[in-house]
Amino acid sequence: MDLSQLRQEYRQAGLRRRDLLADPVEQFRLWFQQAQAAELLEPNAMVLGTTDGQRPSSRTVLLKAFDPRGFVFFTNYGSRKASEIAAQPQVSLLFPWYGLARQVAILGPAARISAAESLAYFASRPFGSQLGAWVSQQSQVISSRSLLEQKWQELQQRFREGGVPLPTGWGGYRVEPLEFEFWQGGENRLHDRFRYRREEQGDGGWLIERLAP
Rank of each mutant, 00 (worst) to 15 (best):
Q156R: 11
F159M: 14
I113T: 13
A116D: 12
V141G: 00
Q150G: 06
R69I: 02
F73G: 06
P167V: 10
G70R: 12
R55C: 09
S143L: 15
Y121T: 04
S92C: 14
Q150A: 14
S92R: 08
W170I: 04
E154Q: 15
G171I: 08
A105R: 12
V175A: 02
R102E: 10
P165L: 05
T60W: 03
L100S: 15
R55Q: 12
T60G: 01
G49H: 07
R145M: 14
G162E: 05
I106D: 05
Y77N: 01
V141Y: 10
R69N: 14
P177H: 15
S144A: 14
T60A: 07
L40N: 09
I106M: 06
R174P: 10
A86Y: 04
A110T: 08
V141E: 07
W152Y: 11
G169C: 07
L166F: 12
S144M: 05
V175Q: 08
R145F: 15
M46A: 09
P109T: 00
L62Y: 05
T168W: 00
R112C: 14
P89S: 07
V47E: 01
R59Y: 10
G163M: 05
I85W: 13
W152P: 00
R112Y: 04
G128M: 08
M46F: 14
S79A: 09
S118E: 12
Q137K: 13
R112I: 08
E179M: 10
